[in-house]
């Protein structure tokens, strides 16, 4: 009885996933859209990432008892893979991107996860907290751009804060209670991607055409490359940063 029930669940999951995949692929091919993919690497010795003294807050110290926290300005994986690099099309003139995946910025173990959150202009994102200590979430844009600073407290169990930004800008975000908590909202126009732990990225939903792809790293700066995408095809752009 139980077995048959499990089987039914498994079967419907497969069917559902299949439908989902079909829908997704239709979305992409319908517009003849392609993508831009590549890898971002650091060429040289990874800079030393300082350990973080969290002794201001015993909760944070405990959260890192077995896994000491380090600064995350430059996160380098094996083979020089650079994580948290934002890639976007700096000469994008197309429409705003349809809202896709839900964007979540989590305060977890007194660190920001992810450390860098990229988003489109006006795209909604959620700030949540997983911690049993109070944070205040305080982005600091330049008000002259049209992005306005705000500062909200999130005690344990607080409801998510949902926001968006009006203008293209790289916005630092910090917690004043835990001054080591420092992250970025990178607001761009058009499709974007962020490199994973292997330094890989894929910018989806790129219509055929010629573009400038820009890579942004918080400490190492920006680099740009020209890339051409054929209908339904994939452009490629790899980037190499030198340590400062």
């Amino acid at each position: 009885m139980r077995n048959r029930y499990n089987f039914a669940v498994a079967l419907s999951t497969v069917v559902l996933l299949g439908c989902g995949a079909l829908l997704l692929s239709q979305n992409v091919s319908a517009a003849g859209e392609g993508k831009i993919a590549g890898t971002v690497k650091l060429d040289g010795t990874a800079p030393h990432m300082r350990g973080i003294d969290m002794s201001k807050d015993p909760y944070c110290v405990k959260a890192h008892a077995t896994d000491p926290a380090h600064m995350e300005n430059v996160v380098v994986g094996s083979g020089g893979a650079l994580e948290n690099v934002v890639l976007y099309i700096s000469d994008w003139s197309g429409p705003a991107q349809p809202e896709t995946a839900e964007l979540v910025f989590d305060q977890k173990n007194c660190m920001y996860t992810p450390h860098v959150l990229a988003m489109d202009v006006n795209q909604k994102f959620k700030v949540v907290t997983s911690d049993q200590t109070t944070h205040n979430i305080h982005p600091n844009p330049n008000p002259m751009t049209g992005n306005i600073p705000w500062n909200q407290s999130q005690p344990p169990g607080a409801a998510p804060v949902e926001k968006s930004w009006k203008a293209v800008e790289v916005i630092p975000v910090q917690c004043n209670i835990h001054p080591w908590m420092h992250g970025w909202f990178v607001v761009v126009k058009g499709p974007y991607a962020t490199t994973d732990a292997s330094g890989n990225y894929t910018i989806n939903n790129v219509p055929p055409g010629s573009y400038t792809v820009t890579a942004w790293q918080e400490d190492l700066g920006t680099q740009a490359q020209k890339v051409t995408v054929a209908a339904g095809g994939a452009g490629s752009a790899n980037f190499t940063f030198k340590p400062k």
Binding site: I137, H138, P149, N151, S153, A158, V161
Partner: peptide, 14 residues
């Protein structure tokens, strides 16, 4: 409401 421009946050939601 908090004091915008300073570390003093808003607690309105909580």
């Amino acid at each position: 409401t908090g004091l915008d421009g300073t570390p003093m946050p808003s607690f309105a939601d909580n």
